[in-house]
Amino acid sequence: MTALPRTVPISPDVVDLRCSFASLPLRHPVLAASGCFAYGQQFADFLDLRALAGLSTKGISPRPRPGNPLPRICETASGMLNSIGLENVGAAAFLRDKLPMLRAQGISVWVNFFGEDFAGYVECARLLDAGAGAGIDVLEMNISCPNIKKGGIEFGTVPEVAHRLTRACVEATRIPIVVKLTPNVADIVEMARAVKEAGAAGVSLINTLTGMAIDVRTRMPRIATTYGGLSGPAIKPVALRMVHQVARAVPDLPICGMGGIVSGEDALEFLMAGAACVQVGTANFARPRAALEVLAELRALMAELGIATVGEATGCLRAIPPEAPWEPPGN
């Protein structure tokens, strides 16, 4: 039995969606997520990229990577598994062929990056810094991709290792580093604290959950690497829980929330859990305009609920009031 908060609907026109993430101004809180937006150009056929708050590119490594064998994806209940293998054009080709178009859009450009080993991460941060400087707003450090072998899993799951890696990358660049954490850990708060202490400007929460699917007719896994990363609405409750835990335990750490957002209501849930902004990922595959649809729905929903600003939404979660105490009868 909980009363609704007193809300006075307002006009969608007066909802102020401007916000900031780690002191970077954003026109609104909806970005497109890494791995689900390539380098942006394919989406220009479907929408005006300038209407996005920003986007996070496909993960960039120092050198190009060809990606994993087939099959690489399969759909699951309310989600999908992928094991693309961090295929990308490499830092040099990205800087030369992809970044200029993104810069020209005047949106927040987040470049997701990784290395195949410790030195590779630092090298990639240096290369991107040297080649782009002010043209990149955020380096989103991917320490969480499940689809890379070579011991990469430690970067995202052992706090001391994540701390060392983050510190080394922070020192290698002037661009703010936002660390994208993996949910495949026992304690997300510990990981968030470790990267914050190492100088991360914020965290992106969450990457995919590792999962598996089997084709019983062929008796084979449905993706070639056996395990892949689960994304889509199926993982949203896990993502929300982690955003909430980190927001509560590490209050000064800006959080970019993501994981199964397909609607404005999903986005508002993430803001209420404590995210400063959100990314829309898997939904872009089915609906290339998904991020803008999420934004329009978010504006309408905030108006309906009388929430005038993003700041007002972030962390406005109310606690469920305690029940009246129960006493065994006859006392």
């Binding site: 689900c36 937006f37 390539a38 394919q42 989406f43 056929d45 990606g67 064998p69 087939l70 099959p71 690489r72 994806i73 399969c74 759909e75 999908m80 992928n82 693309i84 295929e87 898997t282 872009n284 595959f285 089915a286 290339p288």
Partner: peptide
Amino acid sequence: EQMACGFGVCLGCAVP
């Protein structure tokens, strides 16, 4: 091939 988007973004439908 399995594809999520159809327009070159998901990279699921790689052909060797």
